[in-house]
Design a protein around this nucleic acid. Structure first.
Length: 589
RNA sequence: GGGCGUGUAGCACAGCUGGAUAAUGCGUCGGCCUCCUAAGCCGAAGAUCGCGGGUUCGAAUCCUGCCACGCCCGCCA
């Protein structure tokens, strides 16, 4: 709790420096207490024992004895060599009510911190609809964008469009060369596309892509060779910046990308800028980059003229050659990525990328290359893949759960719950709530676990609406909203903080949680760990429920001014926090 | 074979810059709607923190060996 730390640090410093322990030694030890029953901040005194030649318990006793009584503290106690500080709930209440806790906004850049950060996420190949495997990137990335904004950073969300290379090449070739009948014929052994998405271009066009993949694998040898040749020519042309080919690629993938973005938009995900990979080929920066790389000390040339850097000399283990130019002189994906990063450094002074764990090696190579060019390397958030219980997802094989289907199902199930719980709501209201709840549950299910953890998608977990899920937090928020609406029409008593003795547990817990809110957000943003904030929001909602249980705001037609103020502050915190997680903070559910 | 990551109650998951009784949800068992929305609240049971060594006053956390699982090791993207 930063607020409390600021209050007690000067006193600790005075006492400890007199005893001969400097701040550098104790400051990092002062940390949040493990258990609420132990207090809010704890200083373990064991490390001082050898310096002071005294038993830890004697030291903490001493410190507790000498610590002055200050307004912010209810109590300082010494237990088993730990010095425990418990905040005074009245002081906590005062901090909350005097706006020491920032509510913030996740929806716009405020520039409060003066930091600007460019977050690149998703950047999925525009070759087919979004499936839940790809969605982890987008949800993680978008949440990071929102949390940085909530924290007060200026953020730009960027989508790097892979508009050249094989994937798009295959799509473009298929659309040009295969008829609808041929596509249906080639995919006859697969499940037919869902009726529901017949008009959505990503679902439609992916069939051409899949059909082409079937042909490339199963056609007779002559046909296969011919296809490879044709696609190869296209890809080659795109990599040399052939504008005609790039244009045909663009008209092939644009409707697909639009469809993908429509799906993401339903999840509340959007981007500020799109940058096309081809841009760096067309404007010549990739060519320039390759000559710069050629001149590096660690550059080498293969027999056929291909260029590489020997990153082994810079500490890379395993395969140390990093190829940046093919034998035919064209660039590779990674080369363009280096160019792209150099450009990004010109746009922002903090770069964050969200990437799947399969990109680790490549990211390392790009990072080392950037350093070789005297550039900084970006911060990268890696995540593990989402699997299905049956195994890995693959667009090519058609073994996927489409995000569109998941969202439809989430909406339908949420809708059924609302109808059961609130039979009096009309259709429009039910639909609105179901959409917010359904998409929130899907997002939260992914955000709440740490990214490096492997993740198996299970319908029943994605669609859980109970404690531990997004609807739980949303529900606490609607309780606060409902109080807010009701209290506005009633007479209100003056804001008078109750004495410590008469404060119920639920109130104290809520105050403590609210006072750590900004701390958790800051750490979450600094370490790029959205799940920490997600779990904190769960605790905040839980604490609000405790407050709701213990502190009636409206009693006998009169509003308790103090309880109402606290409730309002909690409501604001929950609202902005929900927005930070990409959850629509609805007022009724 | 090499590199990176993961392994915590029946299931899922937090804690990992070393600190006191390993947090939470689902599931299980029991209780609470004349009172601000019960998508809620209260209580109970449930953990050799993958296994073995080491460092330390103190190890789920650090080091090391082993085991299991995932990802990567293309002049693909």
């Amino acid at each position: 709790m930063k607020l409390l730390r600021a209050e007690i640090s000067p006193h600790l410093e005075a006492i400890l420096s007199q005893m001969g322990v400097d701040k550098a030694a104790w400051d990092p030890l002062l940390q949040p207490s493990r258990e609420a029953s132990q207090g809010d901040l704890t200083l373990p005194c064991f490390p001082f024992a050898s310096i002071l030649k005294k038993a830890p318990q004697a030291i903490s006793d001493d410190l507790a004895e000498q610590f002055p009584s200050i307004e912010a503290l209810l109590n300082v106690s010494s237990v088993n060599g730990y010095l425990n500080f418990t905040a005074n709930p009245e002081w906590l209440a005062d901090s909350v009510l005097s706006n020491q806790v920032d509510v913030g906004s996740a929806l716009k850049n405020s520039g409060r911190t003066g930091e600007n950060v460019l977050i690149e996420h998703t950047s999925a190949n525009p070759n087919g609809p979004f499936h839940v495997g790809r969605a982890r990137n987008a949800i993680l990335g978008d949440t990071l964008v929102r949390l940085h904004r909530l924290h007060g950073d200026d953020v730009r969300a960027e989508y790097y469009v892979d508009d050249m290379g094989k994937q798009v090449g295959v799509l473009a070739w298929a659309l040009e060369n295969l008829s609808e009948d041929e596509v249906n014929e080639l995919l006859s052994d697969r499940e037919p596309p869902s009726e529901r998405w017949l008009t959505k271009a990503d679902h439609q066009r992916v069939r051409w892509y899949q059909a082409a993949q079937v042909l490339r694998k199963d056609a007779d040898e002559d046909r296969k060779a011919q296809i490879e040749n044709e696609i190869g020519t296209l890809v080659h042309a795109s990599e040399h910046g052939d504008l005609g080919v790039l244009e045909s690629f663009e008209s092939a993938y644009t409707p697909v990308l639009d469809g993908m973005l429509a799906t993401l938009s339903r999840l509340g995900i959007s981007y500020d800028t799109f940058t096309k990979e081809s841009r760096f080929v067309v404007d010549g920066t990739v060519a320039d980059l390759m000559s710069t790389l050629d001149a590096l000390e660690i550059a080498g040339t293969a027999d056929n003229g291909a260029g590489f850097l020997d990153l082994g000399q810079r500490g890379l283990k395993g395969k140390t050659e990093f190829f940046y130019r093919r034998g035919d002189g064209s660039s590779l994906y990674a080369t363009r990525d280096v160019a792209y990063h150099m450009w990004k450094w010109g746009e922002s002074n903090r770069l964050v990328n969200v990437l799947g764990e399969d990109h680790k090696l490549q990211a390392k190579q790009v990072g080392l290359t950037l350093e070789e060019l005297n550039q900084k390397r970006p911060e990268v958030l890696f995540y593990s893949f989402i699997k299905l219980p049956e195994g890995k997802m693959s667009t090519r094989r058609g073994n996927v759960v489409f995000m569109d289907d998941l969202l439809e199902e989430a909406h339908a199930q949420a809708s059924a719950v609302v109808r059961e719980l609130r039979p009096e709501y009309d259709d429009e209201k039910v639909a609105k709530i179901a959409e917010a709840v359904g998409t929130a549950a899907v997002r939260f299910n992914i955000i709440k676990v740490s990214p490096e953890k492997g993740f198996t998608f299970r319908w029943e977990e994605a669609l859980a609406f109970e404690a531990g899920s997004a609807p739980f937090i949303m529900y606490a928020h609607t309780r606060a909203c409902s109080i807010s609406k009701r209290a506005g029409t009633l007479p209100t008593s003056p804001v008078q903080c109750p004495s410590v003795e008469s404060m119920p547990e639920g109130l104290v817990e809520l105050l403590r949680l609210m006072c750590t809110h900004n701390d958790v957000l800051e750490r979450s943003v600094r370490e790029q760990k959205a799940h920490l904030f997600a779990l904190h929001m769960l605790e905040l909602a839980n604490a609000y429920n405790g407050f709701y249980r213990d502190c009636p705001v409206v009693r006998d037609g009169e509003v308790d001014g103090f309880a109402f103020s606290i409730s309002e502050m909690a409501r604001e915190l929950m609202r902005s926090g929900l927005e930070g997680l990409g959850i629509t903070p609805i007022e009724e559910m």
